[in-house]
Design a protein around this nucleic acid. Sequence first.
DNA 1: TTGTAGGCGTTATCAA
DNA 2: TTGATAACGCCTACAA
Lengths: 344, 344
Amino acid sequence: MYPKMPGRARRSAAGQVTLSDVAAHVGVSSITVSRALRTPEKVSEALRARIEEAVQTLGYRPNHAARALASARSHTVVVLVPSLANEVFVDTLSGIYETLHPKGYQILIGNTRYNTEEEERLLSAYLAHNPDGILITGFDHTPAVEAQLANSRCPVVHMMELDERKERLCVGFSQFECGKAMTRHLLDKGYTRIGFMAVQGDARTLKRWEGYRAAMQEAGLYDETREIYVPDSSSVGLGAQLTAQLLERAPDLDALFCCNDDLAYGALFHCQRQQISVPGRLAIGGFNDLAASAWTVPSLTSIATPRHEIGQRAATMFLQQLDGQIAPGTAYDVGFELVARESS
Amino acid sequence: MYPKMPGRARRSAAGQVTLSDVAAHVGVSSITVSRALRTPEKVSEALRARIEEAVQTLGYRPNHAARALASARSHTVVVLVPSLANEVFVDTLSGIYETLHPKGYQILIGNTRYNTEEEERLLSAYLAHNPDGILITGFDHTPAVEAQLANSRCPVVHMMELDERKERLCVGFSQFECGKAMTRHLLDKGYTRIGFMAVQGDARTLKRWEGYRAAMQEAGLYDETREIYVPDSSSVGLGAQLTAQLLERAPDLDALFCCNDDLAYGALFHCQRQQISVPGRLAIGGFNDLAASAWTVPSLTSIATPRHEIGQRAATMFLQQLDGQIAPGTAYDVGFELVARESS
DNA sequence: TTGTAGGCGTTATCAA
DNA sequence: TTGATAACGCCTACAA
């Protein structure tokens, strides 16, 4: 048996320097130290200096749990995203972090893995932290999650999509219009046998898919045999495999709209390997405009989504609701941009 | 002015259902409810059932802060990684999560952005949470961080590298040997004018670089004009740009070892665009073996690093130290594997 | 198997 | 500007 960890013997163990330790050191009451730390302007300058010094020398560290318990504010915000292996959500998180960190908020990241049940479990667990706010991806949740959000007594901001019911705080863009925009771009370029590749089947993917369908139907060119879908999670390899499958089934395809850039890279690689010229024989469009999309050969036509801004905005909207500075049901549309490159 | 959020009036506001609410409902003391929830086996079956029912109907949720404060155990583990935009650390995190979540631990993720000062700030902030453990990347820290780790009174596990001093708990592999292995592979394949591309300049990159140098010097083929380095953060685009620069400076290069796969993709794309045949005119090797590396054209030779296992292992080692089940200074070598593909 | 007592470190309230 | 007091919700220690 090796040395156990401190055992956390009991009673925070020897270690912890507390507010009253600092207070004793300075010769004031602990509440004064508390004030000197949180609202320095309410403490006389002389005292403040002595307190700060004592904090330094004693190495005092505030105790988050005690603060949360006493103040009923955890300074914690829960963020639920479907994936971390996706540049999109990493960028969103960094926007959130940048905005919330300076305000003293901790972020509790929940990775739902594109699974609403997992989301439910995560939310339940995280609610025990009494978050001051919840930033959640999309509107597609289990009834239990909806109920928890409603009862959470803290601001909830939905990210990535816009609420058609205009009842919930949200920031995002129209996934449907994105799907339409890319499809129209391909139609405008003269392609007529345009396929669609989808995976994962989350709500946002499905909306893009609807956008594709709407545009194809409007053009009188819709043909469901040019669509391919599997529920698996997205990857470059899967993109390559599905491209092969789809081309077998619909050999006359002249363009392919992939529901995200990873799949599109896979499509590109497949074509390269099979000597299928892009865009000569097959045009390819992606979605999200990941950092690498400008560098592939040929470079990838995609739709740029301002996810970093979505993160910043979602965090800001949370702060605003905390202060009553925002109307309930506010929907913030960040828009999107089609980036035409060599692959189309 | 719009409706503010509940205001968190004070005193946990109307809302909170507490242990004693449940206790009152059932007609027992609150400690009994606490036990029924944490150690069900210590409560009679009949009571347990009634308590569980009351928990359901009242919608009781444990309060993390109160629990942490009373028990001096936060059930929180801090994980510090240099980046989230890197498959490597996302995979590591998922290994950690899988291992720790079932044991009831929350994970506090800190993204240091490859910056030791930022790491210091993050650790300071996170220490306020009284974590039960700290999983940190590498051994390259500021003195303040080293001091905080030493004083933290909780298990600390270092990930990704092995401790030469054999003093610290760690799990990883030899970055130096990796660098050597890839270089030797290229030498074995007959390449002699092998370049090296590095970015970011973190400790691990530098060790791989040393491995490269050692191998080249052993072969009597080392030439520093074939090395290129910039401190910028890694990206596919940067890989392409640096490849162009290096080829200009050292046009006779016949192989290029990139310190990670992202850069290698960039190198691949540059060659494709410039019609430089790979590996005919220039062989390329990467590092990490990201998921896409098997699908590029040509597919990329790389070094597979078992980061998921590192995550699992690091979490396990933390749990073991908590129970005194592991010798101090244990270093767990997960090894690595060279994956030779078309690009070399 | 269940309960009593007391405190974890901090902050809100109210008073001085 | 500063302080005394009483929570916050839960858990450890000990007792019954």
